[in-house]
Design a protein around this nucleic acid. Structure first.
Lengths: 139, 139
DNA sequence: CTGCTTGCAAATGATTTGCAGGAAA
DNA sequence: TTTCCTGCAAATCATTTGCAAGCAG
């Protein structure tokens, strides 16, 4: 994980003020597993910093997303989730069990990268490819 | 497109009662372009059937989704969207311009199908693969 | 200092729910 | 007839907003 001062740097590097609240949100993002929702983050943050407001956490996360510190992701039925681990990966989703699991597959990542390097989609320039593999998580 | 009686059959085939409301929703799904939201569907439906309630449309769409008559999809910032065209395809998304464009690519579909036929993901059985290609729509 | 941030509480907007009455099969 | 479906209106829940006060740079 990252130290407090590393987090400060990460935030400052984006031209954002490294406030207590932002550091707390970043910490929570790293420590709450499984692509937390705002609710999950608030639970974690509330233990250490009970005075940080929910609205602030929403604003902070929007802010982080705009500055590429987190990725937002959402499934069909749930609230928005946030992912602070930016290494390329995909997601396995079981809606029934409400599971959302990271799926790292560099072979597939590389294939797709090459595929779209060659195959040009008219009138569209690609920033990112999100893959959600929908199915059943077997106990 | 499909006739009224074809729609009736499609709905009945899932064991659902072919009510006026459901037919109207299915019609709207076929005729409102670009993966409509409930709001867009209501606009279309309201012209012909002003008495159909919004709640009914929500329930109908949930119902259709459970019975594989539509797919639900949602992007980061928007309301739920519904897709009644079930042929395999992916989506190009430009969040800034709020564009969501169908992307048909059978080469990619086939590759992925074979890829996951061989590559077994432990503890997970795949039903569907959703790909969202995020980027900028030019022009 | 000064402008970016925060806390708070109210507002919004999409979606869900409960229930009494209605209509397909 | 009987079960499934609908309309309505209220409720819920995630998220956004406005604004006065606070704090990082």
């Amino acid at each position: 994980m990252k130290s407090q001062s590393e987090i400060k740097q990460i935030i400052s590097a984006q031209g954002l003020k490294a406030t207590l609240q932002r550091i707390a949100v970043y910490e929570a993002l790293m420590n709450v597993p499984n692509h937390p929702t705002v609710e999950m983050l608030m639970e974690y943050i509330g233990e250490k910093y009970p005075s940080i407001a929910t609205g602030t956490v929403y604003k902070t996360l929007e802010n982080f997303a705009e500055n590429n510190l987190v990725k937002k992701l959402r499934t069909e039925n749930e609230a928005m989730r946030y992912d602070v681990f930016l290494e390329k990966h995909f997601h396995l989703i079981d809606s029934e069990k409400e599971k959302l699991i990271d799926y790292y597959d560099s072979e597939l990542s590389n294939y797709l990268e090459n595929y779209f390097k060659q195959k040009n989609i008219p009138n569209f320039s690609i920033n990112d490819i999100k893959i959600q593999i929908i199915g059943k998580y077997l106990e």
